[in-house]
């Protein structure tokens, strides 16, 4: 077995930690499969949104509800957090010191929380317009999709906190490393889903 063998898609640990690399293949592949199953959930919710878009029942419409500036800021926050998670992954892979790893994880966490803050603010201002999920089929499909992504970001943030505690508790043992790889995939996956939400959901507001 060569250390350079790619054992799974995404960041591999082969050239810095061969032992963990050997163990990672199965666990990371399994997590990829989970993400693909989760992607089906989002795909169906996107499809449902597309189908139900005309069903506004005389109520609020995308044009009247979406705050493009806010959605753009959220996009920037989440994309930047993916980048900072990437830096955290590099710090983990090359063992550049725990402080640096924790720093980048912390920045990612803050960006994630800031994203959630903006998103909740968006929802609150929609609610103040009477745009609840119970108002129309269109708003049901919106509140079925976008908050589910937000819930994922929330659990991702909780996961980051758990991993920061584990890094200081265990150091970088094999399980911590593998879980950080998984968390990284999860975080980037949420980024991709958000790109879909921005393009398919929010850009409709400009039409």
């Amino acid at each position: 077995m060569s250390a350079n063998e790619v054992k799974h898609a995404g960041l591999n640990l082969g050239d810095t930690d061969e032992v963990t690399h050997e163990q990672a293949g199965e666990g990371i592949f399994g997590f990829w499969v989970f993400l693909m199953s989760d992607a089906i959930v989002f795909a169906l919710l996107f499809a449902t949104y597309g189908v139900m878009l005309p069903g506004t029942a005389g109520g609020p419409t995308p044009a009247s509800e979406y705050d493009m500036k806010s959605a753009f800021i959220e996009t920037l926050l989440l994309l930047t957090s993916s980048f900072t998670f990437g830096l955290a992954s590099i710090a983990m892979k090359h063992e550049l010191g725990r402080v640096r790893l924790q720093f980048w994880l912390g920045i990612t966490l803050l960006l994630g929380l800031a994203f959630l803050g903006f998103e909740l603010h968006d929802f609150a201002s929609m609610f103040s317009d009477g745009a609840y999920g119970s108002r129309s089929g269109y708003l049901s499909s919106f509140f079925g999709l976008v908050p589910l992504h937000g819930l994922h970001v929330f659990f991702g943030s909780l996961w980051i906190v758990v991993m920061m505690v584990q890094v200081s508790w265990f150091g970088l043992d094999a399980r911590v490393k593998i879980n950080l790889l998984r968390l990284g995939l999860f975080w980037h996956f949420l980024d991709i889903v958000w790109v879909g939400i921005f393009s398919v959901v929010y850009l409709q507001g400009l039409i």
């Binding site: 449902t48 189908v51 029942a57 119970s134 129309s136 089929g137 049901s140 509140f143």
Partner: peptide, 23 residues
């Protein structure tokens, strides 16, 4: 989605209000 309809009054599959049971 059916649970959201029943618990929070959403309109995924209701008659009217933009619901779509064929979905």
């Amino acid at each position: 989605m059916l649970a959201l309809d029943r618990y929070l009054g959403f309109h995924f599959f209701t008659n009217g209000m933009g619901g779509n049971m064929m979905n």
